[in-house]
C-alpha cells in the first residue's frame, strides 16, 4: 500500500478559498502555504494532520480558482493523497501536474468516516478501509495522465519530450 494514514473528512464543494485563502497568496513558498492548509474549512487542520494522512471529501473538491497553491499547500502539509466523490477540473489537472495523488471514488467518499485508517494502492486502484475492513474501487486514471505521474509531474514530462525532439 503506497499511501496510508488517517482520514480527515470534508463535505461537498470544498473551494480553493477554503483550501488556501487568497489572503495568503502573496507568497508562493510551499512551506508557508502549508501552514494555512484548509484554514477556512477547519482552522485546526494544520495542527491535527500527520504525515501520510488522507483527505476524504464529497463532490466537486477544489472548485473555484485556478490557484496551484491549493494542491501545493495540501501536499506540503504532509497529506499523502485526496479521495473525493469528484474533483473540479482545474484542481484535477493541477494535482497531477504537481504530483499530488488524487482518487475519484464515490463509494469511498461515502463510506469512509473521519478518523478511519485508510490505505490506497494506486496501481490497482483499490482503496482499503482498515478500520471498517472494507474495500472500494477508485476510477482508473487515463493512461496519458499516468504518464505524467510516472515522469514525476508535467514539467519533467515536457522536458523529456523536448529533449527527445531535439535529439
Amino acid at each position: 500500500m503506497k499511501y496510508r494514514g488517517k482520514a480527515w473528512k470534508f463535505g461537498n464543494d470544498v473551494d480553493t478559498d477554503a483550501i488556501i485563502p487568497a489572503r495568503y497568496l502573496n507568497t508562493s513558498d510551499p512551506r508557508e502555504l502549508a501552514g494555512h492548509c484548509m484554514e477556512d474549512a477547519d482552522p485546526e487542520f494544520v495542527q491535527k494532520v500527520r504525515p501520510g494522512d488522507i483527505i476524504v471529501a464529497g463532490k466537486n473538491f477544489g472548485c473555484g480558482s485556478s490557484r496551484e497553491h491549493a494542491p501545493i499547500s495540501i501536499k506540503e502539509a504532509g497529506v499523502s493523497c485526496v479521495i473525493a466523490r469528484s474533483f473540479a477540473r482545474i484542481f484535477y489537472r493541477n494535482a497531477f501536474n504537481i504530483g499530488l495523488p488524487i482518487f475519484e471514488s464515490p463509494e469511498a467518499a461515502e463510506a469512509i468516516q473521519e478518523g478511519d485508517e485508510v490505505a490506497v494502492d494506486p496501481e490497482r486502484g483499490v482503496i482499503k478501509n482498515l478500520t471498517r475492513n472494507e474495500e472500494y474501487k477508485a476510477t482508473r486514471v487515463p493512461e496519458f495522465m499516468q504518464q505524467i505521474i510516472d515522469a514525476g509531474g508535467l514539467i519533467n514530462y515536457v522536458s523529456n519530450k523536448l529533449k527527445s525532439t531535439r535529439r
Partner: peptide, 14 residues
C-alpha cells in the same frame, strides 16, 4: 479555459 501555473509554464515553453 483556466489552467494552473504548471500548465501555463509548459505552454510558455512549448
Amino acid at each position: 479555459t483556466g489552467v494552473g501555473s504548471t500548465d501555463l509554464a509548459a505552454a510558455m515553453a512549448t
